[in-house]
Lab assay of single mutants.
Amino acid sequence: MTLTLTVPPGAKVRVRITNENGETTEIEVEPGETVTITLPAGSTVRVEVEVVDPDGRKRTETFTLKP
């Protein structure tokens, strides 16, 4: 399973991925970048995406991906 994120110009994104064992991976994606994350097959993962807009506003979306 893959997750692809494209960050709009001016925004910053931090992604936290937590697996079933509670292990967390965190990455930051710079403005204008596209990143593809390969998620472990057969695992349920929690993905938290934090977006910081150019004006400093933050918003966070959290979702769970199941196999």
Rank of each mutant, 00 (worst) to 15 (best):
G22A: 09
A11S: 06
P9S: 10
V51R: 02
L65G: 00
T38Y: 08
N19T: 11
V49D: 00
K66Y: 15
T44P: 09
V13Y: 00
D53K: 00
K12E: 14
V13S: 04
E20P: 05
K58P: 00
G42I: 11
R57K: 10
E20C: 14
V45M: 04
T6W: 14
T4L: 13
N21H: 06
P40D: 11
G42K: 07
G56T: 00
V51E: 00
G32V: 15
T38E: 09
V7L: 12
K66G: 15
N21M: 07
I27N: 12
I27S: 09
E61C: 15
A41D: 06
T34D: 09
L5S: 04
L39Q: 04
G42W: 13
N19G: 10
P9T: 07
F63Y: 04
T62P: 00
M1C: 15
K66E: 15
L65T: 01
V49R: 01
P54W: 03
T64L: 13
T38H: 05
V45S: 02
V13K: 01
V51K: 01
I37Y: 07
L5F: 08
R59I: 04
D55T: 02
P8A: 12
T2L: 14
E33A: 10
E28K: 08
I17M: 11
F63R: 15
L5C: 12
F63H: 15
G56C: 00
S43G: 11
T2W: 15
G56N: 00
D55V: 01
T25D: 05
T64S: 01
T36I: 14
E33S: 13
T38S: 04
L39Y: 10
T38I: 06
V13T: 11
V52W: 06
L5A: 06
V15D: 00
K12L: 05
E48H: 02
S43H: 10
G32L: 05
P40S: 13
E20F: 05
T25P: 08
L5G: 06
V52Q: 06
T44R: 02
I17E: 12
G10H: 05
T44D: 04
L3G: 05
E61A: 14
I37C: 10
R46S: 03
A11N: 02
D53P: 00
E23M: 06
I37G: 12
E26P: 13
T36R: 06
V52A: 01
D55N: 03
P67S: 12
E61D: 04
T34M: 11
T34Q: 07
D53L: 14
E48I: 04
T6K: 09
I27Y: 13
V29G: 03
E28N: 09
V7M: 05
P9G: 07
S43L: 10
E33C: 12
I17S: 11
L39W: 07
P9M: 05
T64F: 15
I17G: 12
R14Y: 07
I27L: 09
T64C: 15
G10P: 04
T36N: 06
T24A: 07
T60R: 02
T18F: 13
G42Y: 09
T18C: 13
A41F: 11
V47D: 00
V49H: 00
D55K: 02
T24C: 12
T2G: 06
E30F: 07
T36S: 09
S43N: 11
T62C: 15
T4K: 06
T36P: 06
P8E: 13
V51A: 01
R46W: 04
L3H: 07
G10E: 11
G56Q: 00
P31S: 07
T62I: 14
N21A: 08
K58D: 00
G22Y: 10
T36K: 10
R16D: 04
A11C: 04
R46A: 02
P67H: 14
R59K: 02
V45F: 08
V51Y: 14
G32S: 13
R16N: 08
R46Q: 06
V45N: 06
N21K: 05
V49M: 03
E48L: 03
V35R: 03
T4I: 12
V13R: 01
T24Y: 08
P9E: 09
T36G: 09
P8D: 11
N21D: 10
T18W: 10
I27W: 11
L5Q: 02
R14I: 04
D53F: 15
K12D: 11
V15Q: 03
T38V: 07
V45P: 01
T44A: 08
K12M: 06
P8T: 12
R46K: 08
V15M: 11
P31Y: 05
R16A: 08
K58N: 01
T60M: 03
V15R: 01
R46N: 04
L65S: 00
P8Q: 09
E30I: 12
T44H: 04
G10W: 01
V7N: 03
T44K: 02
G10V: 04
P8G: 14
T2Q: 05
N21W: 08
L39V: 04
E30L: 05
T34G: 09
E33H: 10
K12R: 06
A11Y: 03
V49T: 01
V49A: 01
L3F: 03
E50Q: 03
A11H: 03
L65F: 15
G22E: 08
E30S: 06
L3I: 09
K58I: 12
T4F: 13
F63D: 15
V35P: 09
T34C: 15
R57M: 02
G22C: 14
G56H: 00
K12G: 06
D55R: 01
V45E: 02
G22N: 09
T4C: 15
P67N: 14
L39G: 14
P31I: 14
G22M: 10
E26F: 04
T18I: 15
G42C: 15
A11W: 07
T25R: 08
P31G: 09
V35T: 08
L39F: 12
I17V: 08
R14K: 07
L65E: 10
T44E: 13
G32D: 12
F63G: 15
V47T: 00
V47L: 02
L65C: 15
P40H: 13
G42A: 13
T44S: 06
T4E: 14
V45A: 06
T60K: 03
G56I: 00
T25W: 10
T62H: 12
A41T: 10
E33T: 10
T24L: 04
R14G: 11
I17Q: 10
T38D: 09
P8M: 13
V35C: 08
T44L: 07
R14S: 12
V29D: 14
V47E: 00
P54D: 02
E23P: 09
G56S: 00
I17F: 13
E28F: 03
S43T: 08
G32W: 13
V13A: 03
T64M: 08
D55H: 02
V45R: 03
E33G: 11
P40K: 07
V49W: 01
N19Q: 11
G56M: 00
V51Q: 02
A11P: 01
T18N: 09
I37K: 13
R57Y: 02
N19K: 06
E33Q: 07
R57N: 07
T2Y: 11
R59D: 00
I27P: 14
E23W: 12
T24N: 06
P67I: 15
L65Q: 00
E48Y: 02
E61V: 15
D53Y: 15
T34R: 13
